[in-house]
């Protein structure tokens, strides 16, 4: 569009407005992350596993357990170990739940193909 007129008067690749937008988006997010960190500092005690939005199981973070979650969508192995919880195995295609590592108060581990979430409750 209109590029015929001035082939040499090319547009900039990146301008001051772009950088301003980038910096403000990142700044707001970093502030939000810090605030979340302060808000959810309390130690988590229970692990809540949901499937399809329904509560599937509640586990204590204090005792080591292994929970096999078998649904019609697939299989996940949830492991509680040393006050940490993570998904050890899954037969989902992307394995993002396994790669996500341990769940924290702020980080819910999700297996979207199986509609499974593993989160830590503050209660």
């Amino acid at each position: 569009m209109g590029m015929k007129k001035n082939n040499e008067g090319k547009k900039k690749i990146i301008g001051r407005t772009d950088i301003l937008i980038l910096v403000s988006l990142v700044a707001v997010s970093v502030v939000a992350l810090v605030l979340f960190g302060i808000m959810f500092n309390a130690r988590g005690k229970t692990v809540v596993v949901t499937v399809d939005g329904e509560e599937y199981a509640t586990l204590s973070l204090d005792e080591d357990t292994v929970l096999e979650v078998k649904t019609e969508r697939g299989y996940n192995l949830v492991v509680v170990e040393d006050g940490k919880v993570y998904v050890k195995e899954s037969d989902c295609p992307d394995k993002i739940c396994v790669k996500s590592g341990e769940a924290t108060e702020l980080k819910t581990v999700v297996c979207l193909p199986h509609r499974l979430t593993v989160s830590i409750n503050n209660k």
């Binding site: 980038l22 707001v28 997010s29 939000a32 992350l33 979340f36 999700v110 979430t117």
Partner: peptide, 18 residues
Amino acid sequence: TDEIRIAFYLPVLIIAGA
């Protein structure tokens, strides 16, 4: 997932998206 707490990912996703 019906798990509203996923929304806490928002700041991370904003940085990654940017």
